[in-house]
Design a binder for these strands. Structure first.
Length: 104
DNA sequence: CAAGTGACTTTAT
DNA sequence: AATAAAGCCACTT
């Protein structure tokens, strides 16, 4: 049960994610909103299957956390791109208010 | 058309 | 801060 790569939804999501510049991020909900939809979960599924071809680490959750189970792999990218982060003793989160970006 | 599946979001414990 | 529950959307069976 996987998303069809021919779906317009998939193409749009990948296109938007690919548009996010380094050092900036968007939440799943924002990406969905950019598509005129609220399918945050659907966006997550697209990333899960086709995220390999786009900067998936620039798409995070509402609380400023990277995709579940992938936060450790995403951290190096943030450090390298200078993405606003709020580090903690045991974890970290994105400084969403400062890093948030929307297509113009 | 109905049911199941998520890299989600929000609100309430 | 961590969990739980309910709501939502696109897609597959």
């Amino acid at each position: 049960m996987r998303f069809t790569p021919d779906s317009a939804f998939v193409a749009d999501v990948l296109d938007i994610v690919d548009t996010i510049p380094p050092g900036r991020v968007m939440t799943y909900g924002d990406v969905a909103a950019a598509l005129g939809s609220r399918a945050a979960r659907a966006v997550g599924q697209v990333m899960s299957h086709y995220g390999s071809d786009v900067p998936w680490w620039r798409v995070i959750r509402a609380g400023g956390h990277p995709p579940i189970e992938h936060e450790d792999r995403a951290l190096p990218f943030y450090l390298a791109e200078g993405t606003p982060l709020v580090t903690s003793a045991t974890a970290y989160r994105i400084d969403y208010p400062a890093a948030r970006w929307s297509p113009s």
